[in-house]
Structure formats: C-alpha cells, structure tokens
Design a protein around this nucleic acid. Structure first.
Length: 350
DNA sequence: CCCCACTA
DNA sequence: TAGTGGGGG
C-alpha cells in the first residue's frame, strides 16, 4: 500500500510534466510496484490475465517489455530496483495484503458465477500475486533487454530512494509516496506512456501525466523537515503501522507535528499498541533504511536471442511483435543510452 | 498496461 | 493524426 501523502501535498509542491521533460534522466523504478500494476491492469474484460499455453500468467512480461521500450524511446534511462527480504516490521501489512487478496478472490468467483463482468474484473485486479518465478523471469527479461537491475537488501523503494539521494540516479519512480520518507530528493509518479486512465466504475477516461514531487519544495511549502514528514507518515499509516494513528488525517497530523520543535517527542505520545511496531523504530527505519552500494548502473545492447527465448519460445508471444519491439529498443538504445555518460560521472571526470 | 487496425 | 475498440498470451 504505502503511505498515503496524496492529500498532504500542496499543488505548488508537485509538477505535472510531459514525458519529454524527463529525457536523459535516470530513474530508479520500484520494480515490484510496476509489476503489480501490470498484473492488475493487463487483463481481459472478464478479469482473466494474459497467459501462455501452459496457463502461466504473462501480463507482467507484456507490460515490462513494452513499457521499457517506450521509456527508452523517450530518452528516459530506467534502472529497475527489486525488493529483497521484507523487514520483520512489515509482517502485519503482508498478512493484511494476503487477507485482502483472498477476499477479492472469493468476490471474484461470486461475480463470475453471477455473470457480472465489470465486478469480476474489478475484483480480479486485486487478486494478482507475484510468484518467485515471475520475479526471476522479470529480472531475466530486463537483463536481456540491457537494462540495469538492482537487488535491494530490503525494500526496493528504500533502495531507489538511497540511489536518488546519493546522486546515482535523478529520481525515484513509484506510485507510492514512501520514497519521500526514505529521503528521495525527487519522486516521479505516473511514469507511463499511454496518458489515459479509466475511471473506476464508469466508462470514462482522464488524462494522466507524469508528476514530479521535489522533497525540498514539499518540505518548504509545508514548512517542515523530513523528520516531521516521517512522523506525519506514521500518523497517517505506513506499511509498518497499517491504519496509522486513529483520528489523524493529513490536516491534524500536520498541525500536531508542527506544534513541537522536535517531531520525535510527538512519537512518545503515540499510544504504543501491543503486538505493533514501536513508532520510534519505524521512524529510524525511514530515516536510515537498509540500502546497498553494490550495484552498477549500465545499459547494454539488447540481446535479441535471449529476449525471444523468454517471450516467444517460452511464453508464446508473437515473434513478429517481439522482433519489432526489439528493433525499436535497439534504435532507441543507440540514440539515447549508448556511450552516454551520466551527469554525475561527467562531474567526477572533470 | 500497450499494440494495432480502422476510421474520418 | 487523433480517437476508438478489440486483442494480446
């Protein structure tokens, strides 16, 4: 789920941009976040995901393949960051997610029996589960496409935020706002090509553009520090304290946190519920998350044969479509990624 | 989600 | 050339 800062962020702290505005930028993408989105969205009208002839789900591979090509064609330089071992503090959130999935699955079966297509699709979207095999294959596909894959020690979002903070990449890319608590100086949301999204329920579409949120502008416009922001997040609810503190929404949380000079003091007043994580431990985790420096950010020539063996040979993708995609990727790679040193490297080499 | 053929 | 509707695996 992630922390919901949506209603806290003032309009002056976010900026809608065209994709062109991100040309030449390295973005560390939260891979699990993306894969789950594909799993939810890439489905038939009745809710069935794309599958190969053996009944294995392929929605995530289709999404990754075309999305990656499009980003590279736009000159965006994606780095894919995968989750490692979830921290013990996340246990309750994980249990709740499993429960939500099971509930959705049973509602899905009901809707199918009643022949209610729209409902079936809606519930099917929440049933998606990423298996280890799907994750491994996603990494293999991205590597075959020449994209850098980074293995996080714990949260991928935390690792992406660290990489942005260290200047290895320009921004963290995710739909969730946690990156900001983790200290990413810049968060890019809605990083997709098709600028249209269906409104839930009705047959209407709205324009969606990439959105950039700068941490310093956010803090400045709210007149707070990152410590304040982390504490606000804890009040609103994070993966480590799902639900947050009862009775606090964005407004009251902001107000109470700003009422003291040291935001940590406020955490002492939060009633510590048995079996739940210590708010101060949650704070420490956001403040200094587990991150590794063991990664290389390097884009390579796409390997046609490897990509085809995964998509075409193993999962029944249409060979011509895949070949066409790879030629687009190769061209875009040569124009936008190959032999281009990052601004950071350029700076070090002065 | 994205592709593609079709439309005006 | 932009918008749509159906299909992808």
């Amino acid at each position: 789920m992630g922390v919901n800062l949506r209603d806290l962020i003032p309009s002056e702290a976010k900026r809608e941009v065209e994709l062109k505005a991100l040309k030449g930028r390295e973005v560390a993408l939260d891979a699990y976040n993306i894969l789950y989105q594909f799993l939810a969205a890439i489905r038939q009208p009745n809710g069935t995901p794309l599958m190969d002839s053996h009944g294995r789900v392929t929605s995530h591979l289709s999404g990754l393949f075309y999305r990656t090509i499009n980003l590279v064609e736009e000159g965006i330089k994606p780095v894919f960051v995968f989750d490692g071992k979830p921290p013990e503090m996340k246990r309750k959130e994980i249990e709740e997610r499993i429960k939500r999935r099971e509930e959705a699955a049973s509602k899905y079966r009901q809707a199918v029996e009643l022949g209610r297509l729209d409902e079936a699709r809606k519930y099917a979207q929440a049933t998606g589960r990423l298996t280890n095999e799907m994750v491994d294959e996603s990494k293999k596909l991205l590597e075959a496409m020449g994209m850098p894959v980074v293995q996080a020690p714990a949260d991928g979002e935390a690792q992406a935020a660290c990489m942005a903070a260290w200047g290895s990449v320009w921004a963290a890319g995710s739909q969730d706002y946690d990156s900001l608590l983790f200290g990413a100086p810049r968060l890019v949301r809605n990083l997709a090509i098709t600028g249209r999204r269906k409104l839930p329920g009705r047959d209407e579409y709205i324009e969606i553009k990439p959105e950039i949120i700068e941490l310093v502008s956010l803090l400045k416009s709210l007149k707070i520090t990152r410590d304040h922001l982390i504490v606000i997040g804890i009040f609103l609810g994070t993966d480590f304290n799902p639900g947050g503190v009862k009775g606090y929404g964005p407004k009251t949380a902001l107000k109470i946190v700003k009422s003291v000079d040291d935001p940590l003091k406020i955490l002492n007043t939060v009633p510590k519920v048995k079996e739940e994580n210590d708010p101060k431990e949650i704070f420490k985790y956001f403040k200094k998350p587990p991150c590794t420096k063991d990664y290389k950010i390097l884009w390579r020539e796409p390997n046609i044969e490897k990509v085809k063996s995964i998509l075409v040979d193993k999962h029944d993708f249409n060979a011509e479509r895949v070949e066409k995609g790879i030629s687009r990727l190769k061209k875009a790679y040569r124009e936008n990624l190959k032999g281009r040193i990052s601004r950071l490297d350029a700076w070090f080499k002065r």
